[in-house]
Amino acid sequence: MRTAAAIAALSALLAVFPFLATAPWVMTIALFTLMYAALASAWNLVGGYAGYPSLGHAAFFGLGAYTEALWFNHHGIGAGLTPFAVLPLVGLAVAAAGLPVAWIAMRTRADVFAIVTITLLFVAQTLAYNLRGITHGAQGVAMPVPDFAPATFERPFYYAMLALLVLALLLSHAVLRSRLGLALLAIRADEDKARGVGVPVGTAKLGAFALSVGITGMAGGVWAYYLSFIYPQFAVDPLVTVAMVLMVFLGGRGTLWGPVLGAFIVAPAQQYLAYQYGASQLYLLGYAALLVLVMLVLPRGVLPTLGDRYRSRQRRARTLRADVGTGVSADTGGDIAADVAGEQP
């Protein structure tokens, strides 16, 4: 019940946010935060549940961006809200493109998988630079600037990103409630054993990967339309991957809300610092420091760590109650029980 209420409150807040904060720079930060929350949730499907740490997701972000931009250049009908309407098709196209990639990359595991996927990212970036006939290389691709009112220009993009976040969370939730979710957790725990008990591991991994990169590509599409001008180095940017991974690790891998929490912490901070200190890349030092800190202090992320602490506290309280109840070590038990009671908010 409390979870449902919290989710409802958060949804309501995010839905009315554009009417509370109207300053364009705040809206920009908010929409990028939502984008990263959607991206991190998407990454979590592969990197969190299945335990395959992809470093190549930015390639699919870029693929989505280019698909959206080129589509509207070739058909010349990019105006108003229509570019949002084709996003599902962009997502399907990117997911389809991800299947053969995953089929090859997911034959490797762990570190090797990370290396294969980061290689993919640089291959994609090189292609974006060099397939000039399609991408115009380093000149970039322009999309028509939408004719939204300047004062509320960010609003449609904000809601598009919010819709993507909701989609990513609903999909993650559905995956967790399905047999696919169970299969992914088994694969993460011990893939060879999973094969030995009949789990169709290939299909499960491909399915998770396709869902994940589909959402990633759609986020890339919204991003392209928002900027209305895309360059290879920003469309296929290793830092996008790094941010996704960092947010998931901070919030908690393999949890539904961890990636969202991670994105809500990291993305506004990064955007705000970039806004304050211009285009300097100082925030990268912050990324590095945060990653080291997470690895040292919260290797499993915020949410799992809090969950563990809560459970162990409950367990302690339960054993203490049992001890006190039976009169065994009632003195010390009572003292600690008082401590525990005092600690609780």
């Binding site: 967790l176 409630r177 399905s178 047999r179 299969a183 999973a194 169709p200």
Partner: peptide, 14 residues
């Protein structure tokens, strides 16, 4: 997880 169901069951309930 060891109930040996086929691919199609992945989309079914946990």
């Amino acid at each position: 997880i060891a109930s040996g169901r086929r691919r199609a069951a992945l989309a079914g309930p946990r």
